[in-house]
Design a protein around this nucleic acid. Structure first.
Lengths: 229, 229
DNA sequence: CGCGAGCTTGACGTTGTTCAACTAGAGTGG
DNA sequence: CCACTCTAGTTGAACAACGTCAAGCTCGCG
């Protein structure tokens, strides 16, 4: 990548960090970083691997995927660009707890963790900011899990749909890049149950399904289903 | 508290921070802190309140309790002293996501969040350490939730018992300070199911129950139950 | 001594998973 | 251009897991 290109990148990162960090530092980061693209389904960072890099997600959507011994998956959360991912979560300790997998084609910058660490140490205000960004994601995951633990399937699936609309696609009408199986892995139930519930909601005119397109028609009702669990 | 006393306190805190922080800073913390004791069942920090304080748990055991609209509780995790709690999790943003409740009598030091923040900013190495401690707790919670999502009740209850033994009581034989209901809230199942499962394991000589005392007899078998879920 | 909270047990109904069969669409090779 | 296959989606029936309810028990404390 040439100098011009690299200045276009990192734009969100530059914005949030501008007040805390010198542009020289950002250039240091860029020099030790690699830009890669991942296709839908490709693994960006593998569960069990070493957290040598922090990921800056420039475009695309990524799932946090945990796979257990019997090859069952659990999606911890799903995020869309721009965002700083992982590594930051468990800074420089132990192996990765889960994988990052592209749900849609992604452009990603892999930042060397050691370089980032040095810059954070040198810019405590910026470190505090990263701390807060990380905490925010933690909070999202915890809320997800609370939903999973307390509600039954309809409430959980409603939560997933509402989350996707508000946090991932940023619209009440979106083209779903997840399969039914993935929604199930996110909501913690079987694929069949996702299908049945979505069909039921379509009949009840709460949502509309057209191929991969999902539209929330009766937002309040969905909220209500989420609330009563 | 007089000067001598306050030097006895914070000892774990002093140890982990000694290499990163000047003793003057610790004294600053102490000056802006209050030491309190909480009896079993008392709320140390309430869900929905403002995170004005970070908690240093000096002695005792604390549960992270989430209560939903219908008064159902979920225990996110349980920790024993010495430990730095919360606030740190979601540094200075939003209201507390959950309550900290004493499960056994606790001695606690409430540290003013603003003072701590200033000290962290002034000691980036120390901030990094706090970051890691926090991440470690996050990881524990996530593992808990993964267990909850993927396993059925026996595996989950096994996880809870194993967790209590290794992380809270630090022994394979311990006097349980939790009620059956609380174990259920931690394992995400009904009280009755906890009882049935524990009785079953007692019959199978996997654990022994004598009043509030729990002893893990067949550790490997419990591990196995946890593994197969 | 009696009361209440926590504990225990069994019966029952609901929820949700599993399995099996079928459909639709996309990609492949003859 | 047509089978062929593979994957994702869909449906229904059988079954297992789990929560709920109701009743009785035990123990510690007032």
């Amino acid at each position: 990548m040439d100098a011009n290109e690299s200045k276009q990148e990192f734009s969100w990162f530059r914005n949030i960090s501008a007040q805390f960090i010198q542009s020289g530092d950002i250039e240091k980061l860029e020099k030790s970083s690699v830009k890669l693209t991942f296709k839908k389904g490709e693994i960006i960072l593998k569960q069990g691997g070493l957290p040598t890099h922090v990921i800056y997600l420039e475009t695309g959507i990524v799932k946090f995927n945990y796979e257990n011994e019997s090859n069952k998956n659990l999606i911890l959360t799903i995020v869309s660009a721009p965002k700083i991912l992982g590594g930051a979560n468990f800074f420089y300790k132990d192996n990765n707890l889960f994988s990052f997998i592209a749900v849609e084609d992604c452009e990603v910058i892999l930042i060397d963790a050691k370089v980032l660490e040095a810059i954070l140490i040198a810019n405590p205000q910026f470190m505090m900011l990263m701390f807060q960004v990380t905490s925010e994601m933690f909070k999202t995951s915890v809320l997800n899990f609370i939903s999973l633990a307390h509600k039954q399937k309809e409430g959980r699936i409603a939560d997933v749909i509402l989350y996707l609309a508000s946090e991932v696609y940023n619209e009440n009408s979106f083209v779903l890049s997840l399969t039914r199986k993935e929604i199930a892995e996110f909501a913690g139930c079987s694929t069949e149950n996702v299908i049945i519930t979505l069909s039921k909601w379509q009949n009840e005119k709460i949502i509309s399904l057209t191929g991969k397109k999902v539209e929330i028609i009766d937002y309040d009702r969905l909220k209500y289903i989420s609330k009563i669990g």
